[in-house]
Design a protein around this nucleic acid. Sequence first.
DNA 1: CATGGCCTGTCAACGCGATGTCAATTCGGA
DNA 2: TCCGAATTGACATCGCGTTGACAGGCCATG
Lengths: 235, 235
Amino acid sequence: MTSPRRVLVIEDEKMLRMALVDALVSEEFDVLQAADGEGGLELALAEGPDLILLDLMLPKRDGFSVLRAIRQDRLASHVIILSARGEEWDRVQGFEYGADDYVVKPFSMRELLLRIRALERRDAGGAPGIEDASGRVRIGQVEVDFAAYCVVRGEERMGLSRRELELLRYFLLHEGEAIDRLRILTDVWGANEAPTTRTIDTHVLKLRKKIEANPADPVHLQTVHGVGYRFTRRD
Amino acid sequence: MTSPRRVLVIEDEKMLRMALVDALVSEEFDVLQAADGEGGLELALAEGPDLILLDLMLPKRDGFSVLRAIRQDRLASHVIILSARGEEWDRVQGFEYGADDYVVKPFSMRELLLRIRALERRDAGGAPGIEDASGRVRIGQVEVDFAAYCVVRGEERMGLSRRELELLRYFLLHEGEAIDRLRILTDVWGANEAPTTRTIDTHVLKLRKKIEANPADPVHLQTVHGVGYRFTRRD
DNA sequence: CATGGCCTGTCAACGCGATGTCAATTCGGA
DNA sequence: TCCGAATTGACATCGCGTTGACAGGCCATG
């Protein structure tokens, strides 16, 4: 899940740019930055970051122009526009298309991070493996509906908490692989948070209760003694 | 992916129209386009596309007029309204004329594509449209009458305020999906308004009192802790 | 094959952030 | 201006995530 998350910040106002970079770095993004449109566009095209935070009012080349150029280059980067509500707002209404989201200045770092996370979730969102037409993933006797945050077992539906869902998605991504607890922690929880490895066991326990036919004798979520866990979809 | 998916884009603003067409073509839609209401209506009637993206503010013939004419012609096309005004009135009005969904400008291409996909899924699933013949929607024990702004529970009728109605409609359009508060805010309230996320809770509270048999133990409007809410129609 | 030590399963309890709830205030349309 | 709706804030409550304790289980060693 934690693929290289590289962000390019294109913002001329120094204070704001630094604040953004700081916040992003502490969220463990790789951060690139540029102070004007031209430099930003060059960096974007050269590096192809996963996400671009784009101010609209920029020296040398305004944000609209940058966005258009980026899209013409078929760059797959996500773009979140940072716009002031003032003058350009009307133009935003007409021009902002091709961006994935927009945040109106002044905004709180918290709000921005929430939107970035939402974007990531939508991106990783679907599911790794084969999902059926309704967007669900089958695991043995049950189906997981990631969009709905729940597992479906016949007629019965059980909710999944966010951690449970993220953990399950992680296992799905690494199907058949024995994964040690430390890696699970850093990949699913992130390096900022540092719970005990016991926490994982508890979550595995809860997942087993929800996806295993017989939680006491797990088929899909197996223990690899001295290492961690291994996940399988087939029965 | 599926059968002939033909889309007609009716939008006067050139940049936006081009952006839309590009995005749709790269999603492998057959795309038709028109720059004003009259041309759009002609194309719609002549070609009967599966989906129409309809701007409201158009030269020669506004979007409402086009929509009305399309429906009078018993055209089966789905219609998604692109509303620049962001006024609730527009949205409600649009639904009364038989639009299937609306997107408020400025919107992200991603969001639009998600809506289109949702529409396709609803369509393919053989799921009936949102409203039945009488224009009402059944939710468990109650019925919602959108035209009359009220819910009917047996003999009892309770009024719905505009926001309540908007929110409820949004949930219906995204049935079975866990939606985070931020998305609800931008989608239902629009980007120009920015109330607290707490506001949503209050409205959910009021909706629950009106549609749930036991508001303290909600069946249809469930909370997904740490995420947002999930709506279901069935009991 | 038996034993000890480490690893995991399981559960109950706690803390904190998220949500439910309502009253007070602001907003917006006749 | 007036009235109802929308929004906000305060406070109560709830649920998840986390932890620690204990009971087993697994493996390595002898």
